[in-house]
Design a protein around this nucleic acid. Structure first.
Lengths: 210, 210
DNA sequence: GCTTTGCTGTAACGCTGTTCTATAACAGTA
DNA sequence: TACTGTTATAGAACAGCGTTACAGCAAAGC
């Protein structure tokens, strides 16, 4: 994160900063593993500290409190989502957009605990900061980029790409969210997801309803 | 709830049962008010007991534990949603369906704390029981009924009403969920909601994509 | 040598859900 | 009236939580 030494810092300072950064990433790795293997309920300060091999005081000096750890996990979750969405490289704009939708669902399903932290307030006291929230919008912008290309290619009717992206995200989120909570059974969840994505996309097509 | 006296019970038993039922509803009223006025975080056993004017032991004898109270609140939330959705009486099937969608959103926005309990796991240890889950599907069936009428009227193409209802619910839930969490700003939330609902509905129209 | 600074472990505080224990209230009975 | 058995309650206690105050330890500066 902030591994660059500040101007005017001594070599000792940088070494210490490196140590700090190492401790920080180690702590986050531990917290992440705990989150994924045992769920958000297992994310307690004492347990993280025990697993990490130190006292809870260390976690407080590094992250300030549990909210600090929660925010890092929140950001990590959105970063994974962003990487998943941006890893779709279909040449056709519409194929890329639908691929992004499938990537969204696949990422959510294989990172359920993270998804719970991101969208279900699974860590009781935590509320993301303004800048963390801003960072979490990156996947949405990726989606908007693909939408813009669809408009440019004449597949979608001209409109505000961000508006369309937000609507598509809402649809995607709704289906995935209900699926993850276990609502209405997971039997035809994939089919429902595909159906809703097609329905939403069709609405914005050129020559459609708009 | 179970206010009918069991066969062979004495008048004293029924009186006592009445007292139990009264205590039960009083406790739920207190919990509900606490939930709505101060959020899910204020729902602690001690606070409910204090507000109610008794010891926590009473709550444990009535509800078994906090999960018992949570489940009742969960059911109450879905009951409110069900009543809101079924209170739409438009004669035209499609108008009734869109009215139900608007009722869904309006109910969620005016019962945010309940919505958090229902869909965001706002009460940490709580998982709804199988029968509570079954009861929560009533609004979905109401939606499916309206869908069925749309199909009968030739507005929608023939298909499984439950499938369509589930897809519509997912779309609705996604938009409302993001709006309630405060995601992507609440500025154009209503417009996005309407847009997504129209998009999803259009997909199932007769002569459309299907 | 000593002091000062940064960091850490321990123990504690106030809170949570839950359970244990002692006590009070009441119907039935001699 | 006095006793018994059931039921229900209040209060204290327990384990766990996030957090913080305090004491101690290592290394840098003089």
């Amino acid at each position: 994160m902030d591994s660059e030494p500040a101007p005017g810092s001594t070599p000792y300072d940088t070494a210490r900063a490196h140590g700090r950064a190492a401790r920080r990433t180690a702590a986050l790795d531990t917290a992440s593993e705990l989150l994924e293997r045992h769920g958000p309920g297992a994310l307690t300060m004492r347990r993280i500290a025990t697993e990490l091999g130190c006292s809870t005081t260390v976690l407080y000096t590094i992250f300030g409190g549990k909210s600090g750890i929660a925010e890092q996990l929140w950001l990590e979750g959105f970063d994974r989502l962003d990487r998943a969405v941006r890893s779709v490289h279909e040449p056709d704009p519409l194929a890329r957009l639908t691929g992004m939708g499938q990537a969204y669902r696949a990422n959510a399903l294989s990172n359920r605990a993270y998804y719970a932290v991101m969208f279900q307030r699974a860590i009781p006291g935590f509320e993301p900061s303004a800048q963390a929230y801003a960072a979490s919008l990156r996947p949405l912008h990726a989606l908007a980029g693909a939408v813009e290309e669809c408009i440019g290619a004449g597949v979608f009717a001209p409109a505000d790409p961000m508006h369309i992206a937000r609507v598509l995200w809402a649809a995607s989120h709704g289906a995935v969210s209900l699926e993850i909570v276990g609502y209405e059974g997971a039997i035809d969840a994939e089919e429902r997801y595909e159906c809703l994505m097609r329905a939403a996309a069709a609405w914005f097509m050129a020559g459609g309803g708009g």
